[in-house]
Design a protein around this nucleic acid. Structure first.
Lengths: 344, 344
DNA sequence: CTGAAAGCGCTTACAG
DNA sequence: CTGAAAGCGCTTACAG
């Protein structure tokens, strides 16, 4: 009863324009598509008829018959459009796509594999020309049949298993290792780890980098100072307060930005920010405003996005080379918190 | 020469499925659309034929003939998908749309009116069901003819002129006024203003709120303490350092988050953070960790996005009421910097 | 319950 | 240079 759709007040079609201009529909088509072999006088008649009627071509109808049948649309499935990493990837993808007159249909997955399947299907049913996915699922065999049907895929931030398509990932393990090695140069030895759910592949990689660095220094992680499964800043703040209340660590490595925020808050609450060194994975806005500034291992989401979209367009244009993993390097940004001098 | 498009390996169509299942195309259509009046045995034959061929329906083709002709897609034009305000609006829009099986085509405008016109047209040519726009342009008369053709519009963050469609905006003027009135309660009188380009309507509104509050207290802005046109944190930091080097103000109001960051950095550089009170418009991460914490007037981008998308769907469902402006209230978050006590 | 015909708005392939 | 016919993949409207 409620929602009786607004009267669609049917838009003018090419037929309407043709009738008003007194030409054939094909001539209107030529003018709309900028084909140059139309008599100037007819071009003018068609133009003014189109303007008068407020005619706008229907692109989906045009693509239906058009050979190749591109929709000039790509799909982008992100972890969460609201988070800075996802939105920076989006921005890079958008810029590249816009230069090629391609639009982006985007949605968030929130680590929900089922939603990923549904959205993938919906995007395919709309015949996007290609798909960039920040994976939430674990099984990507369905990709195979879609690729055979001509769909292009690129994965971002995490590796699909098995590797059926290109993937662009940050150097999570190497970056984490470098970050912790940097931290160890303060000659601190008791290093705590605060991290996200280990079921998330990037979190597991970063934890591996953490243990790599300790091992290289002849150390092993102390289980009492390792906390996994932190998904929010508030959870991280509590966990850190908990640990700091006892015998505090000398240094802390945090595996992602929300965790870093929560742990830094706890350090400030306890006035330990000048005593306990910290390096976080992922940059955070305004990290430089704090005293001390927060040293981080920054990812480069724009580079990830650019690489992903350029691979996707290569694939859409017929590149048949075997799928490959592209690793985007991370960068240490030194701001103070990771270089605290040990008291004499 | 270069990009020979990948062989489209033409996807199976309903006709292919019908042939394999030994039924008419219309029966396949019924099964795909879940029409219940099909013999169970035929349903089964169609299903297995579809699976075998990897059939996926072509939604754009389906919508072409379908009455009403909805594409179940809306367009969203933001200032910059990469900035937190835009991406928070996006997230709210997405959640509402997804619950209704509608996807979102999004793009950034970067304050470029020409790009806004082009993208609006492209989205209309794809026959989105509605359009949410964070305006960059100044002239919205084209909206009128599109509305007559059945397109729904909602504007966000800024008002279109003339007001031809619903608009959802933050309470920029009122929020700024309340923020500055709060600041004046510290009994400081010499209040500086640091703000963005006055050509941006929200910046102008916030400056108006600033002067409103001063006027209500019997004060007038001191031109020497008013700086417009600050677009980055670095510009704001320099401008603040410049002012603070001379005879510093007693209090500062900043009109957006990047400006707040730059000014706070300058205050810390000069160790004036406990002497000069400050309130910023727009919340910033880590504002609570600083000493003192930064008091802000926070916007609610999620509420803006929710309201915008629900108005849009109402319009799409035939709501014909006159266009209205919906104001989303801002919220003062007290953290210390705006409540500094005056030295005796 | 099932399917052949016509049509959605456009383009392709072909005559003139 | 121009346009009538056929077709893109599907749905509507209609017979049976």
């Amino acid at each position: 009863m409620l929602s009786e759709s607004a009267q669609p007040k049917d838009r003018p079609t090419m037929r309407d324009v043709a009738a008003l201009a007194g030409v054939g529909i094909k001539t209107v088509s030529r003018v709309v598509n900028g084909v140059s072999t139309v008599a100037p006088e007819l071009v003018e008649r068609v133009r003014s008829a189109a303007d008068k009627l407020g005619y706008r071509p229907n692109l989906t109808a045009a693509n239906l018959r058009r050979s190749g049948g591109r929709t000039n649309t790509i799909g982008l499935l992100l972890e969460d459009i609201g988070n800075p990493f996802s939105s920076a990837v989006f921005r890079a993808v958008e810029d590249y796509a816009r230069d090629r007159s391609v639009l982006v249909l985007a949605a968030s997955l929130d680590e929900n594999p089922q939603r990923e399947r549904e959205l993938t299907r919906k995007l395919i049913d709309r015949r996007v020309d290609g798909l960039i996915i920040m994976p939430a699922a674990q099984d990507y065999r369905y990709v195979l049949s879609e690729q055979q049907a001509g769909m292009s895929f690129v994965f971002v931030d995490r590796l699909p298993t098995p590797l059926l398509a290109d993937a662009i990932v940050s150097d999570n393990r190497g970056g984490a290792r470098t970050a912790v090695e940097h931290l160890l140069r303060t000659r601190r030895r008791r290093v705590a780890y605060f991290g996200d759910d280990m079921a998330i592949p990037t979190a597991a990689e970063r934890f591996a980098g953490f243990t790599d660095a300790l091992a290289a220094a002849g150390l092993v992680p102390d289980d009492r100072m390792v906390r996994h499964g932190l998904r929010t800043a508030e959870q991280a703040r509590r966990a850190a307060n908990d640990l700091l209340a006892g015998d505090p660590p000398e240094a802390i490595f945090t595996s992602q930005n929300l965790v870093t925020v929560g742990v830094v808050e706890a350090l400030h609450e306890r006035d330990l920010q000048h005593d306990v060194a910290i390096v976080g994975f992922d940059d955070i806005p305004f990290a430089a405003v704090l005293q001390p500034g927060i040293t981080v291992m920054a990812q480069d989401p724009a580079a990830v996005g650019r690489k992903a979209v350029s691979r996707l367009f290569d694939r859409m244009n017929g590149d048949q080379s075997p799928p490959a993993v592209h690793t985007v390097l991370t960068r240490l940004i030194v701001r103070g918190s990771g270089e605290l001098r040990l008291p004499e």
